[in-house]
Computed example of a mutant assay.
Amino acid sequence: MDIDSFWKLIEECRRQARGRDEQLVWLRDELSWRPLTEIVQFQVRLDEVTREAFSWELWAAAERIFGGWCSDDGFCYFRLWMVGIGREAFARAVIDPDALADTPEVQCLVGRPRELWNDDWPEWESLDYVATEAYGLLTRADDDCGDAFYEAADSEVGAVGGSRGPRGEQWDVRGEDEAIRKLPILSAMFPLRPLVR
């Protein structure tokens, strides 16, 4: 599965199912009809594209949307969510994180209290497990198939250097002047509440 096939599958998933839960079921079922190597390659491509979004600028965009803070795990799940908004929106946001403001998925959050975001919360942790689940369905493994799956994924990738930090320079999204300069639209859409002491 090359990168174009990966994105074609993501776009088809978006067309075929509504909501993340339905999309995961559709994607898992679709993957489980494919050869094991393609399932593994799906995970490898997913890891590649989420690595493309591993930048301080996008992390700041996530922090702005989330109200001023985003954990390491939260940013990982945010990047998986970005895959789910589609190739075009993903690519624009990697180049210009403020472009996330143009997506319906972000626009529907504006003005709503975060505690009411529920299924609209911009994270999609489960996407990271869908290939493993499909692999397990296909191998009919009664026990955890994760080891075999990740060994196959590692051999597909080959020897790669250790994990690197995010690209770019870290900055504090709570600094309003800098946030307005770097993320003008998202800063206007998601104003930070002053800290109450």
Results as ranks from 00 to 15, higher is better:
residue 92 R to W: 01
residue 89 A to C: 04
residue 156 E to G: 02
residue 131 A to C: 02
residue 91 A to W: 08
residue 172 D to Y: 04
residue 118 N to T: 15
residue 148 A to K: 00
residue 100 L to F: 05
residue 127 L to I: 03
residue 154 D to G: 12
residue 122 P to W: 01
residue 100 L to T: 03
residue 161 G to M: 07
residue 139 T to I: 03
residue 147 D to Q: 00
residue 88 E to Y: 01
residue 134 A to R: 06
residue 109 L to T: 04
residue 88 E to H: 07
residue 136 G to Q: 07
residue 90 F to H: 10
residue 166 P to G: 12
residue 130 V to D: 12
residue 100 L to N: 01
residue 166 P to D: 06
residue 133 E to Q: 07
residue 157 V to D: 10
residue 116 L to I: 14
residue 135 Y to C: 08
residue 169 E to F: 10
residue 107 Q to K: 14
residue 104 P to R: 08
residue 163 S to Q: 15
residue 92 R to C: 01
residue 142 D to T: 11
residue 179 A to C: 05
residue 157 V to T: 14
residue 104 P to H: 10
residue 117 W to D: 03
residue 108 C to H: 07
residue 144 D to G: 01
residue 105 E to P: 11
residue 158 G to V: 01
residue 154 D to V: 13
residue 175 G to P: 07
residue 120 D to R: 06
residue 106 V to A: 02
residue 134 A to L: 05
residue 103 T to I: 07
residue 117 W to F: 03
residue 164 R to G: 13
residue 144 D to Q: 00
residue 105 E to L: 13
residue 99 A to G: 06
residue 144 D to T: 05
residue 141 A to V: 04
residue 174 R to S: 12
residue 140 R to F: 09
residue 88 E to G: 05
residue 164 R to K: 14
residue 135 Y to V: 08
residue 129 Y to V: 09
residue 174 R to Q: 12
residue 116 L to N: 15
residue 121 W to N: 15
residue 161 G to N: 09
residue 178 E to R: 04
residue 124 W to T: 12
residue 141 A to D: 14
residue 164 R to F: 13
residue 177 D to A: 11
residue 176 E to Q: 14
residue 90 F to S: 07
residue 99 A to L: 10
residue 149 F to R: 00
residue 148 A to H: 00
residue 109 L to D: 06
residue 106 V to R: 01
residue 170 Q to A: 09
residue 112 R to N: 13
residue 91 A to R: 11
residue 117 W to L: 02
residue 97 P to W: 07
residue 126 S to K: 13
residue 94 V to H: 05
residue 170 Q to R: 05
residue 139 T to C: 05
residue 181 R to F: 06
residue 153 A to T: 12
residue 181 R to L: 15
residue 175 G to H: 15
residue 104 P to Y: 03
residue 126 S to A: 13
residue 104 P to K: 02
residue 125 E to I: 15
residue 96 D to A: 03
residue 114 R to M: 11
residue 156 E to Y: 08
residue 104 P to Q: 08
residue 125 E to M: 15
residue 99 A to N: 06
residue 114 R to Y: 06
residue 97 P to T: 08
residue 170 Q to S: 07
residue 145 C to G: 03
residue 158 G to F: 01
residue 146 G to K: 00
residue 173 V to P: 08
residue 118 N to W: 14
residue 97 P to G: 00
residue 157 V to N: 06
residue 145 C to H: 04
residue 141 A to E: 15
residue 123 E to C: 11
residue 166 P to T: 10
residue 161 G to Q: 10
residue 130 V to I: 09
residue 100 L to R: 01
residue 100 L to D: 01
residue 170 Q to G: 08
residue 146 G to T: 01
residue 113 P to K: 13
residue 138 L to Y: 05
residue 114 R to A: 12
residue 172 D to F: 06
residue 161 G to S: 14
residue 87 R to H: 09
residue 165 G to P: 10
residue 144 D to Y: 02
residue 123 E to R: 14
residue 139 T to G: 02
residue 127 L to R: 07
residue 112 R to K: 14
residue 92 R to G: 00
residue 92 R to M: 01
residue 129 Y to D: 05
residue 169 E to W: 08
residue 139 T to L: 04
residue 177 D to H: 02
residue 90 F to N: 04
residue 88 E to N: 04
residue 146 G to D: 00
residue 140 R to H: 05
residue 144 D to I: 00
residue 160 V to F: 07
residue 114 R to C: 10
residue 159 A to G: 11
residue 168 G to K: 00
residue 125 E to Y: 15
residue 138 L to V: 11
